[in-house]
Amino acid sequence: MSDSLNAMRRRSVLEPQWFVPALFVVALLPAVIGVAGTASDLLADTRFFGSNPIKAVEHYFGQWTLRFILATLCITPTRQLLGWNWLAKQRRTLGLFAFGYLMLHWLAYALLDVQLDWHDLTIDLAKRPYIMIGMAALLLMVPLAVTSTKGMIRRLGGQRWNRLHQLIYVISVLGVIHFFMAVKKDIGQPALFAAGLAVLFAFRVQRWRARRAA
């Protein structure tokens, strides 16, 4: 009994060999499907994304951005609960994927939806609070993306890097608020993301309390 438990722990200390390749496949698949589906809809009228593919893919990549932000925030709790410390390295990978999906979301908006109409882009930014919030989240994510290399972590030092990357909490809240504001009246989906985020935050608050009490 205790032998097998120890064996499990020992195994969980090491990253399984298949993990990184699997992660990349899973994380890239929505992007490949999104880009290929959009291309086939726009070039060949295939309705992969339905009747209004530009709106649909804009939403699709917005949702994937938020999913990856939440996945990034899942890493630390998973690590701590299961003792999978090797997961820590993948936090940056997932964060970079989140940023990649945000770029695709922004491209769907700026390139396909507004079609780089400079006037409309600036009006949106000046007049539409949900765009301002989305853009704030995007701008806050840029420094996180550019400091996601090993070299940058070394240059900044672990503590400063960690503090900077706590911005992800602000970004995730802005992202969920942006989602609430983008929907018409059907707040079910954003509420689901908000609930997920609340659980992830609660976990951290509880840890922090426990640490202070100790």
Binding site: A39, S40, A44, T46, R47, F48
Partner: peptide
């Protein structure tokens, strides 16, 4: 014409299309 192009496009991109298309 577009439907035919769609099938071609799907072949190129490797995306399975719903039968409705």
């Amino acid at each position: 014409f577009l439907a035919a192009a769609g099938l071609l496009g799907a072949g190129l991109t490797g995306v399975a299309l719903p039968a409705s298309a």
